[in-house]
Nucleic acid binder design. Sequence first.
DNA 1: CACAATAGTCAGATTTTTATGACTATGTCA
DNA 2: TGACATAGTCATAAAAATCTGACTATTGTG
Lengths: 116, 116
Amino acid sequence: MPYQDGTFGCPVEVGLQRISGKWKPRIIYELLQETRRFGELQRLIPDVSRHVLTTQLRELEKDGIVNRTAFLTMPPKVEYSLTDFGKSLEPILEQMIKVGEHYISLQKNETNNTGS
Amino acid sequence: MPYQDGTFGCPVEVGLQRISGKWKPRIIYELLQETRRFGELQRLIPDVSRHVLTTQLRELEKDGIVNRTAFLTMPPKVEYSLTDFGKSLEPILEQMIKVGEHYISLQKNETNNTGS
DNA sequence: CACAATAGTCAGATTTTTATGACTATGTCA
DNA sequence: TGACATAGTCATAAAAATCTGACTATTGTG
């Protein structure tokens, strides 16, 4: 919803807000590989709690990034996949990986140089 | 610092963490235009408090994204600019803007359709 | 009957992030 | 002398995000 002045906020902030969340980029990354069930995502991302995983998936769904398909079998089965828009986030993720690798390589150098 | 198992964490998370922060993308965006003084940034981003602006600038400096140049004049003058690495973030910001604009255009449509 | 599996929900606690307002230093201007 | 400007710091409060552990439903298996 727009502000009182009719603007919609800074696009950078709006965009970033949609993929912010401790686990969202990671979830998107896993779904870029292939469709996953809820339990698979839990196993792939072991540090996320069930609750937060649910919450973040729901938000991603609301924001048109993931599709949720529930099979009313017993036990239940729920599959998550990326929407076309979700797939369009791949370049951002790739660039973010480069940024991350930049920092990781810095950390590796720090670790190697034992201050001699 | 690496984990006990020798890994350095998911690069996506590492990268995103460095530019996460309510105002960091906006700060980077402003500095992509040109070097700015502290007070200018405050005026350009009126909703950020002095304290948080300072904090986020310090983190960006620590993470090698911005340069801080203090002139010991009176009254003091401090200039912030992007490092080369900071400038390399421009494509990410641009793509994030596209994502943000996508959502903003959705909101505009919602606003126009009064549910007829 | 008890137990396992799936995909959750929920309340409450904890942690992290952001906001608020008071305070600092120093020199110039009136 | 008192006020103003710059670029902050600091303590505390409030808000947002995340974590934890208990709980749900249903069917199949032993």
